[in-house]
Design a protein around this nucleic acid. Structure first.
Length: 819
DNA sequence: CGACGGCGACTTTTT
DNA sequence: GTCGCCGTCG
């Protein structure tokens, strides 16, 4: 490379929404980075890296796989590596392809690179998610895959509505063959990179009486006529495009001198194909690809991620250098010890062991707590949080990580009662709200008159007397003439196909849209947006709505307009929304975070609470039933992710009773508890939570010490529980007994007594002989009377008269009084 | 067109 | 238990 930072010409006409002067920005970054390099022999940005990190940063030639354990400075390596590439003048910013999975990760990376090399990172146009980069490629080369470059990106909701239409058009019962299911199937196929012709015969047959393939074809055709893509297409179209046009692929090969991929363990097959097309070079040409990931944190297998991609990296890229980052900068020794011992139970892994130098005798061990039921669990966690708060800990430093979102509710209820601030992360998203989607549909239709889905969404919203009949007529008319529905509407009002009322109404809408479209170029887009919402009567619709949500919806609409200000045009805004569905959280508030384990990946907190460690919930029954060993290992990785989120304190909970689908079920502690190393774990012997009155006395942990007030609990079962408290403690997760059929029932119709793969299932049953015998009549505090069907150590299977068959610990039942 | 009642579902989630 | 969807009825 010589002077000047002019890029390869055909990349200069980026549809840059704001005002990056690519050349200048590029020069700025590289120049500053070089200045940083020249400032001293060892450039600042390399200072403070450990030897492995430094090697990962400096190994620029040839393929590199960085196996970066939790908290080992993965992002730092990625960003520093980019800075290093720039600083050493090996590539211009626009010659680096850097891929992440989420917009959030991309954003963070940009910020951190900016910190390293100073100033704008706008010179890095190819740093983004797989999907956003896919869009960028497609907008450029749309015609090669039969689209025009202003194609629409459909989200899940659009896709489902579209599929539903197709299913109905086929004359199929959309109840028997739900659109959602088929959307899921298409998604799976696309994750695997499969065209309709390539899908497995079995899959094709499985849906709609064998019409699966046919429907997939119809769906793709429909997308084409709509000039639209779904998310999967954003990956698949570029793949097709590259395969069909080697010359273009070659241009990109020359273009991208360095390729970096974050979270490689989460790539699915389509992403993998995409990446290989771009990364693999002819013999002799260095493949400067660097993938960073952690096989132990692969938790998205269920949505198509292939851990295998990371496991076979060295085969795909011969001569690859593999660098392990195992020095952890986040957590205490105990937390790492617990997590490491747990994850060691997995077989399919490359094998890393995290370590830290930080060792402090005052560090808490991982603490395991037992609670009677989920309500007590929530109450006790709440108390612990308040206790920490009294000791000057910020709520922002605490998180509750649950397996499934239904668990959140109990915590929310409790925290509302306590007046404890909390935030739920990953709930329903701003752009998915009804009013936002309606408003967006108006905007979409203005920008893209061919967007029939948008048209159908808002043609009668607010109500204008254009009901099903009219829409159907329009639909048929449009199909017959092969024009978009808005165009069809414009035509049909010239005819007498519609009744006068509908015709007049439709005429008004068409006129409105014509007007708005004419304003598109010369009116500020926020102004236009407001105008559209007002003139269409959409705002008025909510103003006249007296339901409780209406004011909030109006507020959201205002927020929508506000958020448009950051964009230069309505088109730019629409593109952003279709790809970036998240809205910023309010960081100012001091609040406990509540989220799923999945959404916690990549985050860290001083204190982490992990409730719900029970068989059937975690590991989840469905994973056990459907996914076999692989799924169990993924659940274990999820547990690993959970523990490794904690910097200093990690509290794990399990309960003995949980309500699932409205039914109380007795539950058994998660097998993962048994897989924790005793040396790094403490058992919470006492809980301060005393069960509330008026709840039948179920509020107290069976591990509570006897206390003066415990005479509230005078039921036989409770006494029994008290008496066997210490036994139960040990049996629950001290010694191990078999887990072959341990599961939470899923109601009468649920699968009964499934087992998991043999070898993982039953280890020896070591518990002492039971005081009960098969056939005994027993009483349980919650389930009433029943007969013992079978005994396994201290676990009894009982046919309860009223509650049906359950498995319970013997500490919770006593011999029934004969009557 | 809107209200109400019955019915089924109900892990995890990004783009 | 609760939510959301769908179909029916007024």
């Amino acid at each position: 490379m010589t002077s000047g930072f002019d890029d390869i010409p055909f990349f200069d006409e980026e549809p840059a929404p704001r005002k990056p002067a690519p050349a200048a920005a590029a020069g700025g970054i590289a120049a500053r980075a070089m200045a940083a390099r020249d400032a001293s022999r060892a450039p600042d940005y390399l200072a403070g890296l450990n030897p492995e990190q430094r090697e990962a940063v400096e190994s620029l030639d040839g393929p590199v796989l960085v196996l970066a354990g939790a908290g080992t400075g993965k992002t730092r390596v990625l960003t520093t590596r980019i800075a290093h590439i720039l600083a050493t003048g090996r590539a211009y910013p626009s010659q680096i392809l850097a891929v992440t999975f989420t917009n959030k990760a991309a954003r963070e990376m940009k910020e951190r690179i900016a910190l390293l090399v100073g100033g704008a990172v706008e010179g890095m146009p190819w740093l983004g998610t797989f999907h956003s980069i896919g869009v960028r490629l497609l907008r450029r080369h749309a015609e090669l895959v039969g689209l025009s470059s202003d194609f629409t990106i459909l989200d899940t909701d659009d896709v489902i509505r579209l599929i539903k239409q197709l299913i109905q058009a086929e004359g199929l019962d959309d109840k028997r063959w739900p659109a959602r299911t088929f959307a899921g199937m298409i998604d799976n196929w696309k994750n695997k990179g499969l065209d309709p012709a390539q899908i497995p015969e079995g899959d094709a047959r499985a849906f709609a009486n064998g019409k699966g393939r046919e429907l997939y074809v119809a769906y793709q055709n429909r997308l084409k006529t709509l000039n639209a893509c779904d998310f999967g297409d954003l990956l698949l179209h570029p793949i097709r495009m590259f395969r069909a046009n080697p010359d273009i692929l070659k241009e990109y090969h020359e273009k991208f001198r360095y390729i970096l991929v974050d979270e490689y363990q989460d790539t699915n097959t389509a992403q993998y194909m995409w990446l290989r097309l771009l990364a693999q070079r002819p013999k002799g040409v260095p493949q400067n690809v660097c993938c960073v990931g952690d096989d132990d944190q692969s938790i998205y297998g269920w949505r198509g991620a292939e851990v295998d991609n990371i496991l076979r990296f060295e085969k795909d890229f011969p001569g690859a250098k593999v660098i392990k980052l195992e020095r952890n900068y986040r957590s205490t020794e105990h937390i790492l010890g617990a997590a490491g011992h747990l994850i060691a139970h997995n077989e399919g892994r490359l094998g890393k062991t995290l370590f830290t130098d930080r060792s402090d005798p005052d560090d808490d061990k991982v603490i395991v707590h037992a609670a009677w039921d989920s309500e007590e669990e929530a109450r006790a966690v709440g108390e612990e949080i308040e206790q920490l708060q009294r000791n000057q800990h910020n709520l922002n430093d605490m998180a509750i990580l649950v397996r499934a979102s239904f668990q959140m509710r109990e915590f929310e209820d409790r925290f509302v009662t306590l007046g404890l601030n909390y935030r739920v992360i990953g709930g329903p998203r701003f752009y998915e709200r009804l009013e936002i989607r309606d408003a967006m549909a108006y905007f979409r239709l203005i920008c893209q008159p061919a967007d029939d889905l948008a048209f159908e969404r808002i043609i009668n919203t607010p109500k204008r007397g254009l009901g099903d009949t009219t829409v159907r007529t329009l639909h048929d008319y449009a199909r017959a003439r092969e024009v978009p529905m808005l165009a069809a509407a414009a035509e049909i009002i010239e005819t007498d196909e519609l009744k006068n009322k509908a015709r007049k109404s439709l005429f008004d809408v068409v006129t409105d849209f014509r007007r708005w479209q004419s304003l598109l170029e010369n009116t500020p887009h926020t102004e236009l947006a407001e105008q559209v919402l007002d003139e269409s009567g959409y705002t008025a619709m909510w103003q006249n709505d007296k339901s409780a949500e209406a004011p909030g919806r109006l507020e959201n609409l205002k927020e929508l307009i506000r958020s448009m200000e950051a964009f230069e045009s309505m088109r730019g805004f629409l593109e952003h929304v279709s790809l970036v569905m998240d809205a910023e959280q309010n960081e100012d508030l001091d609040a406990v975070s509540i989220m799923t384990l999945h959404s916690a990946k990549g985050l860290e907190f001083e204190t982490v609470f992990l409730p719900g460690w029970e068989e059937g919930l975690f590991p989840h029954q469905r994973a056990l039933d459907e996914g076999g060993r692989a799924a169990l290992e993924e659940e274990r990785r999820l547990a690993y992710v959970g523990i490794t989120r904690a910097k200093r304190r990690c509290h794990i909970w399990f309960v003995s009773n949980r309500r699932i689908h409205g039914l109380w079920q007795s539950t058994l502690p998660s097998r993962f508890l048994d897989e924790l190393p005793p040396g790094h774990v403490d058992v919470a012997e006492t809980e301060q939570s005393y069960g509330g009155y008026g709840r039948g006395g179920y509020g107290q942990s069976r591990f509570d010490n006897a206390d003066p007030f415990s005479n509230t609990y005078s039921t036989p079962g409770w006494k029994r529980a008290q008496q066997h408290r210490s036994d139960a403690t040990r049996d629950n997760w001290g010694t191990r007994s078999g887990h072959a059929v341990e599961r939470i029932g899923y109601g009468e119709s649920g699968p009964k007594g499934r087992t998991i793969d043999g070898e993982l299932v039953a280890r020896s049953t070591s518990a002492e002989p039971s005081r009960f015998a098969v056939g005994d009549r027993v009483f349980h505090i919650k389930f009433g009377n029943g007969n013992i069907a079978s005994i396994e150590g201290n676990k009894l299977t009982i046919d309860f008269d009223r509650a049906g068959q359950k498995r319970v610990l013997d500490g919770f039942v006593e011999k029934a009084k004969l009557t």
